[in-house]
């Protein structure tokens, strides 16, 4: 994630789902869990919104077919299962802590 000079600033994350044809977990519930875990630090917004710092692609399975072509040049993190969602939380926490230091 690009550097953030203000640790108290909320990071805008553009949320992009795959279409969810046959997801292997509840994607919406996982996003809520991520949101709750990073409350006050991360704001999920539409991916095309202004000020988006990174795109979080929430894929229902390892096929990961969400169309990300509109986000070329942007930082994209992809999660395809619950474990990767937990890893994302840890990474963001760590990155924000680094910024705070």
């Amino acid at each position: 994630m690009a550097s953030n000079s203000n640790a108290d600033m909320t990071v805008k994350v553009g949320l992009k789902y795959c279409g969810g044809c046959n997801p292997e977990y509840d994607r919406v519930a996982l996003v809520k869990h991520i949101q709750d875990s990073l409350q006050g630090k991360v704001e999920f917004v539409k991916p095309e919104s202004e000020g988006v710092r990174l795109i979080l692609a929430v894929e229902g399975c390892s096929t990961a077919c969400a169309d990300l072509s509109a986000f070329q040049g942007m930082e994209i993190r992809v999660i395809t299962n619950i474990e990767e969602g937990e890893r994302f939380i840890k990474e963001i926490r760590k990155e924000l802590k680094i910024f705070a230091d």
Binding site: L15, Y17, C18, G20, R27, V28, K46, V58, A66
Partner: peptide
Amino acid sequence: RPEHEDIM
């Protein structure tokens, strides 16, 4: 719905 628009 954001969680389905990519297909729909």
